[in-house]
């Protein structure tokens, strides 16, 4: 059975108790909202649909294509699910996928499941849907382009959130983990974006009714656009900051006293850089590349948005 786990599934033991519980609390609140919204807006018939869609995301993650050097690209699906099913339903569907991966395959832990759901299910759905919703009335090509950028950003956001949680737990060095995670996922994100765009194009061509104004995907309000943009901006601003100037973030976490609570059981882990990445040129280059990619993505979104207004 081909089943390739993604590097974002955090196992138990790698996050501190405080960080795990905070992530569970955020996840629980968002899921409670998702449950009450879906219970209100969906008919009984939609529940089996969501179940089969969850199985679809799970199965679609097995589709892969060779990229280069034995690595292969494949789908995570958060953005695609949100665009097709709507944000709340997508959050529930992704939660079910992550829960089954953790319970059945031990791919991701139980105590840290809140963090995993947050990183791979909730943030990805909010960015994927928010950005796509912003251009819902634009041309087909604009929608596809924005969906691609949103898919890429959603993967980056998940990777960044994972890195920050690992850092706050005292498991990893901030700069190293951010650079390592973001550079790997910048590539994985490209695969995600390409597959998401192609899959959406296919659905638009064959079943446009599933994506039109009256469909489930059009049910989210404009607030999602704000959420998507804010989260994207957070990725854009935090990634270069954390990879180029980790001391700043360390300082903030220390001033707030949060880092001591989060790393309970271990000594403070302030701005010690790892020799390998202390090599300034290397880390700066990596940070610069990531920053540039992120800025490029934002420029594309902004450009599309402006284009829409003027046309």
């Amino acid at each position: 059975m081909h089943y390739s786990p993604v590097a974002l599934h955090i196992p138990d033991g790698f996050l501190s108790l405080v960080v795990s519980l905070i992530c569970w609390a955020i996840t629980a609140v968002l899921l409670a909202m998702a449950v009450s919204r879906t219970n209100k807006s969906l008919g009984e018939k939609q529940v089996p649909l969501m179940g089969v869609m969850a199985a679809f995301i799970f199965a679609a993650q097995m589709l892969n294509f060779p990229v280069a050097g034995g690595t292969s690209g494949h789908l995570l699906g958060g953005a695609l699910a949100a665009i097709v099913l709507g944000p709340w339903a997508a959050m529930l569907v992704m939660t079910a996928v992550i829960a089954v991966q953790a319970l059945l395959f031990q791919d991701g832990g139980l105590l840290v499941m809140g963090a995993n759901i947050l990183n791979m299910g909730l943030i990805t759905a909010a960015i994927g849907y928010g950005l796509y919703r912003g251009v819902a009335n634009s041309s087909r090509n604009t929608k596809l382009a924005v969906a691609g950028v949103a898919a890429w950003l959603s993967v980056m956001a998940g990777a960044l959130a994972t890195s920050l949680q690992l850092w706050l737990s005292g498991t990893s060095n901030l700069q190293t983990v951010v650079i390592a995670m973001l550079s790997v996922h910048a590539l994985i994100g490209v695969g995600e974006a390409l597959i998401t765009v192609a899959a959406l194009a296919f659905i638009m061509q064959t079943r446009p009714d599933l994506l039109d104004e009256t469909s489930a995907s059009a049910r989210g309000g404009r607030g999602w656009v704000a959420a998507g943009v804010v989260l994207s901006l957070a990725v854009v601003l935090l990634s270069p900051l954390a990879s180029a100037f980790p001391d700043g973030l360390n300082r903030v976490a220390e001033d707030l006293g949060f880092i001591h609570i989060a790393q309970s059981g271990s000594g403070p882990l302030a701005g010690y850089s790892v020799p390998f990445f202390a090599d300034a040129s290397l880390s700066k280059i990596a940070a610069g590349m990531i920053g540039a990619l992120v800025v490029l993505a934002v420029a594309i979104i902004a450009g599309r948005g402006l284009q829409k207004k003027t046309s």
Binding site: F56, A59, A60, L63, N64, F65, P66, V67, G73, H74, L75, L80, V84, G191, L194, I195, T196, V197, A198, A199, L200, A201, F202, I203, T206, R207
Partner: peptide
Amino acid sequence: RARVVGNMAGQLFL
């Protein structure tokens, strides 16, 4: 190749 997999994902979705 990515487009082929995208079409497969779309097909699987439908």
